[in-house]
């Protein structure tokens, strides 16, 4: 079948989203006011290590001043990657078309 891989990928992602919706509703109910869920796994590790009294001995040279700025750089990272992937697949695709015509 021609689109077998696409269908499988679509199904896996759909299941992934369904699991999120399901667990999210359970988690949101258990939260007290002002509490936030879905933090990063590294924040959890940080908490775990800090409990033992460890103080990080070096801090980042520069930190994004707000969550918005941070998401700007995360989006920029994804955009740079997506641009390169799209460019070369487009290039290859057009090359192949030209070759077969």
């Amino acid at each position: 079948m021609r689109y077998k891989a696409e269908i499988i990928a679509g199904l896996v992602i759909a299941v992934f989203v369904a699991i999120f919706i399901f667990t999210n509703s359970a988690i949101q109910q258990g939260l007290s006011e002002g509490e936030e869920s879905w933090a990063g796994a590294d924040a959890q590790a940080e908490e775990f290590i800090s409990e033992s009294g460890y103080e990080p001995w070096f801090s980042p040279l520069w930190e994004p001043p707000s969550g918005e700025i941070e998401s700007l750089f995360f989006s920029l990272q994804a955009a740079i990657g997506a641009l390169i992937i799209g460019y070369f697949f487009g290039y290859y695709g057009a090359q192949r078309k030209k070759g077969t015509n």
Binding site: N24, A41, A78, G81
Partner: peptide, 14 residues
């Protein structure tokens, strides 16, 4: 670049 910029929610609530 792309995949490591995507923070995804997982079953563990993080």
């Amino acid at each position: 670049f792309v995949l490591s910029s995507l923070k995804l929610p997982s079953v563990t609530g993080s």
